[in-house]
């Protein structure tokens, strides 16, 4: 795969808010003193009268978002994933989730690729936390094109939506002219019958690279991009389980509670096959450059390739 343009999905988030502002004149954007980093600052600059800084008070921000949503106005609430999903969890659960309010949580700096800030800021638990809230839609876009499409889709959804964005610039591999986003529908990016790699977020591109490496060894891997972790595309996943008999999941999140867990839950019930979960292995992160950390924590094409190959050997 040739060198691609790289862009962080938080950048896409900020730009999408600006691009969608005229089409959806009602929505407002909240942030908690991180507008420069979450990129809602782009919207703040373009539409200052529709932007409200809540200060360093994430729990309160979620409550304010809930109140705004009760009036029928669309609202984005933004912070780092750690504080949006973590700090404010119970408010999101009880004031946004329980009344099923249409609040769109724009959470940036998710996962280990936060880098140098270290463990306190590297949120590898947010998918798990948001996924257990009834009625919450959880979307983890893989690149710029998908991220922008997800922001637009979120505006049209009902109920609470959690959008997960990253800090690190990642390859933009989707083609804007042909890409179509459908909430809750996985995208098969490569076909294959030997095994299926199911990935989300920045691991999707790594999965594609791993599939190419496997091909050289004569192993034909199917690659599925699950951008919507909830509601999960169970049908597509079960079909893959049935047709390939082996699943490898890849996510920049704890192996507990995230995509790997969701996929396991789905296949367990109807068509159990081995599920190899690649993610952060129940440990805290630490400081370092994002690229080095991704490698260290096995969030790479190389590790997907190695683990998939080993699992495939056992399958035979």
């Amino acid at each position: 795969m040739a060198d691609m343009i790289k862009k962080a999905t938080r950048e896409s988030y900020g730009e999408a808010l600006v691009e969608l502002a005229e089409q959806y004149p009602d929505f407002v954007v909240l942030d908690a003193d991180l507008a420069a980093a979450t990129k809602t600052g782009l919207f703040k600059k373009a539409y200052p009268e529709r932007f409200f800084d809540c200060g360093i008070a994430e729990a309160n921000m979620m409550g304010i978002a809930a109140g705004i949503a009760t009036t029928g106005r669309r609202v984005f609430a933004s912070s780092f994933a750690m504080f949006a999903a973590g700090r404010a969890f119970e408010i999101v659960r009880n004031s946004i989730g329980y009344p099923h309010l249409h609040v769109i949580i724009g959470a940036t700096h998710a996962g280990i690729s936060v880098g140098e800030d270290g463990a306190t800021h590297q949120c590898c638990e947010d998918i798990a936390l948001m996924r257990v809230i009834p009625g919450m839609t959880v979307i983890n876009p893989a690149d710029d094109v998908e991220a922008k499409a997800a922001v637009k889709a979120a505006l049209e959804l009902d109920g609470p939506v959690y959008l997960r964005f990253g800090r690190l610039a990642c390859p933009v591999f989707n083609d804007k002219s042909t890409y179509r986003f459908e909430t809750g529908k996985g995208i098969t990016l490569a076909d294959g019958g030997d095994l299926t790699i199911i990935a989300t977020g920045l691991m999707v591109y790594e999965a594609l690279k791993a599939a190419e490496m496997l091909k050289k060894d004569g192993i034909c891997a199917r690659v599925i991009n699950i951008h919507t972790i909830k509601p999960l595309d169970t049908q597509l996943i079960l079909k893959a389980a049935y047709e390939t008999g082996l699943i490898v999941t890849a996510e920049e999140h704890s192996i507990i509670g995230g995509l790997g867990s969701a996929v396991s839950e789905a296949v367990c019930e109807d068509y159990p096959v081995p599920v190899v979960k690649i993610g952060v292995n129940d440990v805290f992160g630490h400081s370092g450059p994002a690229a080095d950390l991704l490698k260290e924590f096995g969030l790479s094409a190389d590790n997907i390739y190695t683990r998939a190959k080993a699992a495939f050997a056992k399958k035979k």
Binding site: E116, D117, G118, A119, T120, H121, H286, S287, G288, P289, D292, L293, E296
Partner: peptide, 8 residues
């Protein structure tokens, strides 16, 4: 990476 002095 690997240093004692973490970001926080």
């Amino acid at each position: 990476i690997g240093a004692m002095l973490q970001g926080h």
